[in-house]
């Protein structure tokens, strides 16, 4: 784990406002996403984050020790 489970959950939650606002922002440059495309994009992003968070090492709990102080 690169980040703690708690932080991972927060990062994933933060995808919601990103995706929701992205639609409006992209419409400014004439890119109109459908709801389905947004959902797919959101799931994709979450997938990428999960891979990033879990990929390198699942054995060490390096950063988690910081949380338990």
């Amino acid at each position: 784990m690169r980040i703690s489970k708690g932080a991972l959950l927060i990062v994933i939650a933060f995808i919601a406002p990103l995706i929701v606002e992205l639609r409006t922002v992209l419409a400014w440059v004439n890119v109109e996403l459908t709801v389905l495309e947004s959902v797919v994009l959101g799931i994709g992003l979450i997938g990428v984050i999960l891979v990033w968070a879990l990929w390198p090492q699942s054995q060490s709990n390096g950063t988690e020790s910081a949380e338990t102080k």
């Binding site: 980040i3 703690s4 489970k5 708690g6 932080a7 959950l9 927060i10 950063t63 910081a66 949380e67 102080k69």
Partner: peptide, 17 residues
């Protein structure tokens, strides 16, 4: 809590709480 970096300290916050 041991956080470092410009933004890296964010990771050291107690998000689990």
């Amino acid at each position: 809590r041991g956080g470092t970096g410009y933004l890296g300290w964010l990771k050291a916050l107690p998000w689990r709480d």
